[in-house]
């Protein structure tokens, strides 16, 4: 009998460990066993079932992310092209705002957001702009920005930041898929983030899909904004309202990539789900007369390039 109880304990603890590694909710059996007390007293129910997540306020997305943005661990946000970097950075900044707010609501002192941007990323896509971020809802007094020269330096700073409990979120912005940030490095950051209880947002600018240790990888694309509402309820024609993102969960537990259209409301500091504009849907598919997306070359030789030339496309796994 005692053997059986010990075996059961072992199995339950193993299941708990697995659930923690996989970042899933604790199985019901484990929860029941943990709640039961041999003395017969009811223990306080654990509010988190083993994982901490920040609800984004969009039910579908929260369900897909199993509760929301993981507050311990790495989440990757990427965009395909440099010109979309504004949308991805905006989405990451919005998550930063939500993290800041969550800290404040819990009654803790305001913790700063650390934004580490490898200098090439900021040179290509622009520096974070204080006034714009303030209007976006971020408390810029609680923003610390770092502009390391190389990816290695950026990783070092991120790792140092994840081991102190001072930041409410760390945004690490990297351009492309550098070799210095491969699977093992991302695993290292992920483990640091879980141990330090600080969420890490890896913002991959104009990068490809690449295997990483992140829980989720979200592809963020820009989407046409709504129009500005007027006081009488109608919309101001031709105006550009709050930013809208098309967020596609590339890596998640869902069987296929799912897309969501989210609108960020800087005033309410929360996301709202929106329906895609018909214009956006129409602009998306192939045009009637398909032309190359890139402009015709000018001022260069018209000859085809030599075969076997190396291009800077890194391994996409």
């Amino acid at each position: 009998m005692a053997d059986k109880a010990v075996q059961r304990e072992t199995v339950l603890s193993l299941r708990e460990t697995i659930a923690r590694i996989e970042n899933r909710r604790l199985p019901g059996v484990v929860r029941a066993a943990k709640a039961a007390d041999p003395g017969g007293f009811r223990q306080r129910e654990e509010d988190e079932s083993g994982r901490k997540a920040l609800a984004l306020g969009v039910p579908d997305l929260d369900a897909l992310l199993e509760g929301g943005l993981p507050l311990e661990g790495m989440t990757e946000i990427r965009n395909a092209e440099t010109r979309d970097a504004g949308a991805a950075a905006g989405f990451a900044a919005a998550l930063g705002v939500l993290c800041q707010q969550a800290r404040l609501e819990k009654g803790e002192t305001a913790a700063p957001v650390l934004w580490i941007s490898q200098s090439m990323a900021s040179n290509e896509a622009g520096m974070p702009y204080g006034l714009g971020l303030k209007a976006y809802g971020l408390d810029v007094r609680g923003l610390v920005f770092s502009l390391p020269r190389t990816v290695k330096d950026a990783l070092w700073i991120a790792e140092a930041a994840l081991s102190v409990p001072s930041f409410c979120a760390v945004i690490l912005e990297i351009r492309g898929n550098p070799a210095a940030l491969a699977l093992s490095e991302s695993r290292r950051l992920h483990v640091r983030s879980r141990a330090g209880h600080v969420p890490l947002l890896l913002l991959r600018q104009s990068g490809h899909e690449e295997a990483s240790s992140a829980f989720f990888r979200l592809l963020v694309e820009p989407a046409p904004a709504r129009e500005r509402p007027l006081p009488d309820g109608s919309m101001l024609r031709g105006s550009i309202g709050h930013p809208v993102f098309h967020v596609i969960a590339e890596k998640s537990r869902a069987p296929a990539p799912l897309g969501f259209f989210l609108e960020w409301n800087p005033h309410d500091r929360r996301f709202y789900p929106v329906e895609p504009l018909p214009a956006a849907a129409a602009a998306d598919p192939e045009p009637a007369h398909s032309v190359a997306r890139l402009s015709a070359s000018s001022g260069r030789s018209g000859r085809p390039q030599a075969l076997g030339e190396l291009v800077a496309f890194p391994r996409a796994s």
């Binding site: 950075a89 622009g126 974070p128 702009y129 714009g132 971020l133 209007a135």
Partner: peptide, 11 residues
């Protein structure tokens, strides 16, 4: 601040 739209990233 809201009326004067400012970008989130500035070159």
């Amino acid at each position: 601040l809201a009326a004067a739209a400012r970008p989130q990233r500035l070159f």
